[in-house]
């Protein structure tokens, strides 16, 4: 007992982990996007799912996403400690040990995959397992420190949830699911690179190759434009599938026009111009990119609602 008392007193002084610190390991803000897109994928599918099964599926898809966040925080603790934005995360701040983050990540991965498989089907569980592997191993361990294309390829991990939701409902992967995946996948690079343009980040000190550092800011602006152009046919193509309707088509037309206009404005700006107005255009583009994704998936949900009520 004496040992324990001595130990815990010392630990309390440096700030002991509360339940919230373990929740923080799961990256709750990222989880909210996972929950929303997975829910849309599940609800727009042409199969009625029992509400309890749907709830369980979304919960464990979110938990699987959280597990990959914990594994990311375990592996990236050294980088997180260097960067101001991430230095207060549970592992670099010393509240949670790296070992605890690793074991939480592994256990939650196993539980979420097993529970999703039991609640729905093993295809959905398999895609969830692959997503966790992709984010924790392919992105975090292999790509993040190796290539400035890390954001592009890593974006796939964030793009899988609607496909998992669809697979949970239907037991298959179809063109609708692939296009929902592609929408998030191609949206990710312009979204993050816009942020990288105005966030004078310390990625450089952490030795993480970001496009703004390795290829320059002008090239980053050009890449934002290229990916935004590539995004338009995907967004409109999804509008031609069975899950979309008039609301989605109208929303996609307007949103893509605004997004393209913003990307062209970013591409045409010189760095001095951007500095002069404190990156106003880049910040507006980044903010709009959040609405862009939310409204596309919201429109899919609205069309599904119209179909359910027999209005479309």
């Amino acid at each position: 007992m004496t040992d324990l008392t001595t130990n815990t007193t010392a630990k309390a002084a440096e700030g002991e982990a509360g339940f919230g610190d373990y929740i923080a390991l799961l990256k709750p803000r990222v989880m909210s996007l996972v929950v929303f897109t997975a829910l849309v994928g599940l609800l727009v599918a042409p199969v009625q799912v029992d509400p309890m099964i749907a709830f369980t599926a979304i919960l464990f898809i979110a938990l699987g996403g959280g597990a990959s966040g914990a594994l990311n925080m375990w592996y990236d603790a050294d980088i997180d400690a260097v960067m101001r934005r991430t230095a207060r995360r549970p592992v670099p701040s010393g509240k949670v040990t790296a070992g605890e983050a690793l074991s939480l990540g592994l256990w939650l991965s196993a539980i979420s995959v097993a529970m999703l498989g039991l609640a729905t089907n093993w295809l959905a569980a398999g895609i969830l397992a692959f997503t966790i592997f992709f984010y924790a191993v392919v992105y975090t361990m292999w790509l993040k420190r190796a290539t400035p294309q890390n954001i592009v390829i890593g974006g796939a991990a964030g793009a899988f949830p609607p496909m998992i939701g669809w697979a949970a409902a239907t037991g298959t992967v179809s063109v609708e699911a692939v296009l929902m995946f592609a929408l998030i996948f191609i949206w990710t690079p312009p979204h993050f690179w816009a942020l990288a343009l105005f966030m004078k980040s310390d990625y450089h000190e952490a030795k993480v190759p970001m496009l703004t550092v390795t290829h320059g800011r002008a090239e980053t602006r050009r890449q934002i434009l290229i990916y935004t152009f590539a995004l338009v046919p995907v967004a409109l193509g999804l509008g031609l599938t069975s899950v979309a309707g008039p609301v989605y088509l109208a929303a996609a037309l307007v949103l893509n026009l605004i997004f393209l206009k913003g990307a062209v404005a970013i591409w045409r700006r010189a760095e001095a111009q951007a500095e002069a107005d404190a990156y106003a255009v880049e910040k507006r583009f980044f903010r709009f990119s959040l609405y862009y994704l939310f409204l596309h998936f919201g429109a899919l949900l609205a069309d599904a609602g119209l179909r359910t009520w027999g209005l479309a």
């Binding site: 008392t5 007193t9 309390a12 339940f19 309890m52 039991l118």
Partner: peptide, 28 residues
């Protein structure tokens, strides 16, 4: 013990998670 007081929040969180998990398995 002081340890119990400090860890109350964490223990409560774990307890509620376990109860929630049992409820989900039952509902499922």
């Amino acid at each position: 013990h002081d340890l119990h007081k400090r860890r109350f929040g964490r223990n409560l969180g774990v307890a509620l998670s376990l109860v929630g998990f049992a409820a989900i398995v039952f509902g499922l």
